[in-house]
């Protein structure tokens, strides 16, 4: 069954006709063309599809698009402000925290939500915060370094 869905994504208002049983991940990728949000397991166990909903990390594969109509949704495409990259995006690139890049969007958004709540986190807290975002390439070392480097500048 289709319905008209209004979504507020990355500061833009969208109005689309789509199926009501679609997840936010599917709507972002298929209807809005925002493919920066990745589908890694589709069952909420890898974190690759993490987006921010009202600033909180959310697994878009386990979120009904219909259920977040009134929310502010931020995907990786919406993280840069006025052409200026978010410090986490820069730090991830510069510190070698990105290899294949598939976990990167979810990892960065989770880290952003976390740093917004914790100005000066300890290393162990960073690890716990990103522990739902799996990465098979980096061994997490440089990711943790990148997040901490941004928190130190906060």
């Amino acid at each position: 069954m289709k319905h008209i869905l209004k979504l507020h994504v990355n500061g833009e208002d969208y109005e689309i006709l789509t199926e009501i049983h679609k997840t936010l991940l599917e709507v972002l990728r298929e209807d809005l063309g925002l493919t920066g949000t990745k589908r890694g397991c589709d069952l909420g166990t890898c974190g690759a599809c993490t987006v921010l909903i009202d600033g909180k990390p959310s697994l878009s594969c386990l979120t009904l698009a219909a259920a977040v109509r009134d929310k502010k949704i931020t995907t990786i495409e919406g993280l840069a402000k006025d052409g200026e990259l978010h410090p986490l995006q820069k730090a991830f690139a510069e510190k070698g925290a990105i290899q294949c890049g598939f976990c990167t969007p979810g990892m960065i958004l989770t880290s952003k939500a976390f740093l917004d709540e914790n100005l000066k986190p300890k290393e162990e807290e960073v690890k716990k915060a990103i522990s739902g975002n799996l990465c098979r390439c980096t061994g997490y070392v440089k990711i943790v370094e990148a997040v901490l480097s941004v928190s130190e500048k906060q």
Binding site: T50, L59, L62, A113
Partner: peptide, 8 residues
């Protein structure tokens, strides 16, 4: 779960 599961 992890952070996102707790936030959701």
């Amino acid at each position: 779960g992890a952070y996102a599961h707790q936030a959701m």
